[in-house]
C-alpha cells in the first residue's frame, strides 16, 4: 500500500471513531450531547497532535526511538506544581481555582522551566548539547518527582485523592476557554517553527550527516527542542501528563508506515493518536462507565507494547 492510501485509511478510521463518539447513546438530546462531546473531541485532537508531533521531533533529534519528551522533566514539574498547591493551600484551593488561572500558571511555570533549561543550552557551544540537556532534564525531573512524593507522604488521604486525580490525563472536564487558548498557543508554535520542520528528515541521519548536508544544526536543533517543550507544556496543562501516549503512537506509526519521511510520519502519528485517544475514551465511557481513566488504559496497552518492543529488539 502506498503512503497516501495508508494515511487515507487512518483518516477514515479516525473520522469514523469521531462520528461514533459523537452519536453513540445520544438518546435524542442533541443540544446537550453534541457541544459537550465536540469539546472532548477538540481537546483530543489538540493534545493528540501536540504530543505526537513533539514526540516524533524529539525522537528524531535524539536519534532514539524509545525516548519521550517527558525526559525533559516537564511532566514531573506539572505534578509537583499540582501537589504543591494542595500541600500548601489545601485541596479546596485547587478545585475552586479558576481553570483559566490554573492553566495559565501551569503553562507559565513549565515554559519558564523550559526557558531556563534552554538558557543553559544556548550558553554551551559545540556538540553533545542535546545530551547535556537530557541529563539536566532527567536530574531536574527526578528532583521534582522526589519533592512531590515527599509532599504526598505528608498529605491527608482526602487531599491525596485530589492530587492522585491530577496524576492521570483526563478529557472529562475540559474547559472551553482554555481549549481555545491552548489551540492558539499550539498553532502559534507550529507557525513559528514551521520552517525548521523541513530539516527533520536530514536530522534523522544524525548530526554529522546533517551538518555535511548544510543544515545549521545547532540553531535548528535548539529551536526544535523549544518547540517540543512548548507543545508538551500546552498539552500537559490542558489534560495532564500524557507523554507516554507519544511514545506509543510514534512507534506504531514508524512500524505501520515503514518510512523515514516526516511528511508521512507526522500526520500518521497524529491520526493514530486520535484513534487511540477516542477509542480509549469510548472504552472508558461505555465499557467502564467512567470507573477508570483514559491514561490507565493507554498505559496498560502502551506498557504491553513497550515490553513487546524490548523483547523483539533483544532477539534481533
Amino acid at each position: 500500500m502506498s503512503d497516501k492510501r495508508k494515511l487515507l485509511l487512518l483518516a477514515i478510521v479516525a473520522i469514523a471513531l469521531i462520528a461514533l463518539f459523537m452519536t453513540i447513546e445520544a438518546n435524542g438530546i442533541w443540544e446537550y450531547v453534541l457541544p459537550r462531546r465536540a469539546k472532548k473531541i477538540a481537546a483530543i485532537v489538540l493534545t493528540g497532535t501536540a504530543i505526537s508531533v513533539s514526540t516524533v521531533v524529539f525522537q528524531t533529534l535524539t536519534n532514539n526511538k524509545i525516548l519521550t519528551p517527558s525526559l525533559i522533566g516537564l511532566d514531573s514539574l506539572y505534578l509537583l506544581l499540582q501537589t504543591a498547591i494542595v500541600f500548601l493551600f489545601g485541596s479546596t484551593t485547587l478545585t475552586a481555582m479558576n481553570k483559566n488561572v490554573q492553566f495559565g500558571i501551569s503553562t507559565i511555570v513549565m515554559v519558564g522551566f523550559a526557558g531556563i533549561l534552554y538558557k543553559l543550552l544556548f550558553m554551551r557551544k559545540g556538540s553533545g548539547t542535546i545530551y547535556f540537556l537530557l541529563l539536566v532534564g532527567i536530574i531536574c525531573g527526578s528532583f521534582f518527582s522526589s519533592i512531590s512524593e515527599f509532599m504526598k507522604m505528608l498529605l491527608d488521604p482526602n487531599e491525596f485523592m485530589v492530587v492522585q486525580d491530577k496524576m492521570f490525563a483526563s478529557f472529562n472536564n475540559v474547559n472551553g476557554d482554555i481549549l481555545i487558548l491552548a489551540a492558539l498557543a499550539a498553532l502559534a508554535a507550529i507557525g513559528f517553527f514551521y520552517r525548521d520542520l523541513k530539516f527533520l528528515d536530514v536530522l534523522a541521519l544524525g548530526r554529522e550527516h546533517a551538518v555535511n548536508l548544510g543544515v545549521p544544526y545547532d540553531r535548528v536543533s535548539k529551536r526544535l527542542l523549544v518547540f517540543t517543550a512548548l507543545m508538551v507544556s500546552v498539552s500537559t496543562a490542558l489534560v495532564g501528563p500524557i507523554t507516554f501516549l507519544g511514545f506509543l503512537v510514534a512507534n506504531v506509526a514508524y512500524r505501520l508506515m515503514g518510512t523515514f519521511k516526516h511528511s508521512v510520519v507526522l500526520p500518521a502519528t497524529s491520526l493514530i493518536s486520535f484513534v487511540a485517544l477516542i477509542g480509549g475514551q469510548l472504552i472508558v465511557e461505555r465499557v467502564f462507565t467512567f470507573s477508570t481513566s483514559l491514561s490507565v488504559i493507554l498505559n496498560f496497552a502502551g506498557g504491553i507494547y513497550f515490553l513487546y518492543l524490548l523483547l523483539k529488539e533483544n532477539r534481533s
Binding site: 551538518v211 555535511n212 548544510g214 543544515v215 545549521p216
Partner: peptide
C-alpha cells in the same frame, strides 16, 4: 552559511 558550504564541500 552552512547550506552554501554544503554545495562546495562534503565530508
Amino acid at each position: 552559511d552552512s547550506r552554501e558550504l554544503a554545495k562546495v564541500v562534503s565530508i
